[in-house]
């Protein structure tokens, strides 16, 4: 999971870089915006993947209380994000 987070971070950064460079070229703006958007979405996933990796680490170490707290944190995060979207959009 840690490797997956690192890979997602690198691919996301590369896609954002490609989007930023593409945005400078005439006629490529739509593609560039799409690629940058995908890259940014990838970067946004990294903290969630990090939390999942952390939960696995706690489980492996037998620290069940911390693993359960991490699950609770992920749930609160999901509810907070969903509530925020519903309320403000």
């Amino acid at each position: 999971m840690d490797r997956f987070a690192a890979l997602t971070a690198r691919l996301g950064t590369l896609a954002v870089l490609a989007g930023a460079l593409g945005g400078m070229a005439e006629g490529l703006e739509t593609w560039a915006e799409w690629i940058a958007g995908v890259g940014i979405a990838g970067l946004i996933c990294v903290p969630v993947v990090d939390l999942l990796a952390l939960r696995e680490t706690f489980r492996r170490r037998g620290e069940r209380r911390y693993a359960d707290l991490t699950t609770l944190l992920l749930a609160v995060l999901a509810v907070a994000a969903a509530t925020s979207v519903v309320r403000h959009v």
């Binding site: 950064t13 954002v16 930023a20 945005g23 940014i40 946004i44 903290p47 907070a80 925020s84 979207v85």
Partner: peptide, 23 residues
């Protein structure tokens, strides 16, 4: 992440404008 979801859904995150800052 919790706050960002609303900004993203509302269209207040412009990928091309944000890309250089994020990089």
């Amino acid at each position: 992440l919790a706050g960002l979801a609303a900004y993203w859904a509302r269209g207040d995150v412009a990928p091309l404008q944000a890309a250089p800052a994020v990089l």
